[in-house]
Design a protein around this nucleic acid. Structure first.
Lengths: 148, 148
DNA sequence: TATTGTTATACTCTATAACTATA
DNA sequence: TATAGTTATAGAGTATAACAATA
């Protein structure tokens, strides 16, 4: 370890590499979703809501997005204001709120997937399909391992 | 730091997997750096400043952190307020500002590396060293490919 | 006139805490 | 009393635009 003054040209720090890639993903999604009037977080929420087989409770949405319930309120507020989802009290338990996509919400979901797919293709263009698959597996392993 | 009772995913969407991991990294760093009075962004900036062989100009710092100069000002403000770095006009070009770690800054850098290392070990514990190396290579490839 | 960094401002995203309304 | 969601608030992180000082 003699060469203490050497500055690595390339970053090898895993957390730092993650941060850089995440930032690029975020910027790319931001740019591609802006024409739809959506932010990445709103797009994620709408996607989660649209993908659920049944109306989602706010708490269930928060869980799936890995955010606290209060944060889900902010995101859903924006989607409601944009006319993309509806909020309705759960008839079975009036404390709960059920969220469902509106007609406009369903329509935008298609264009959204398009935008997300394009953004991803662009961001990961430097990797082959095999490499992307390896990456997916590694990240899925991490994700499955839970917090920490 | 909220553990919103994370739900593991069968998510195969690369951007989404990235977001989840990044979030975990961020939360872990947040928790481990808080005792030092640092946020992750401040820690990164201090690390970059401390690692440079010569005093960094603000613009150079911003470039390496991949943020705009205005954002570098905010981060450095915090580090100056904490007494960890000094700002001084570049004698060779008085428009430029040079940033260097203080004595306290140097001292905290050691503890910081420790905290960062622990956080990373914890976050990536689910992967073998071989897998981590593969991950590093894939991310480095993406990073080298530049924006987009 | 071009550059370097700053002041001023705003927005995304997420958090904690206290309150409201149900149950 | 416990639960679900909200109002109120805060703070990290980053951005654009206008401006001052220096070159």
């Amino acid at each position: 370890m003699a060469d203490a003054t050497r500055i690595p040209t390339t970053e090898t720090d895993l957390p730092e590499l993650f941060r850089r890639t995440s930032k690029r993903i975020h910027r790319n999604q931001m740019a591609r979703l802006a024409p739809l009037g959506l932010t990445p977080a709103q797009s994620r929420a709408l996607r989660t809501i649209g993908r659920a087989p049944e109306p989602l409770r706010m708490s269930a949405l928060a869980e799936r997005l890995d955010i606290v319930p209060r944060s889900a309120t902010t995101v859903v507020d924006a989607l409601v204001d944009a006319g993309l989802v509806n909020r309705a009290p759960d008839p079975a338990n009036r404390r709960s709120t059920l969220v469902t996509p509106t007609e406009a919400g369903h329509r935008i979901l298609t264009r959204m997937s398009e935008a997300r797919r394009e953004a991803a293709a662009e961001t990961f263009a430097a990797l082959s399909e095999t490499q992307r698959e390896t990456l997916r597996e590694l990240l899925a392993t991490l994700d499955a391992a839970g917090p920490a």
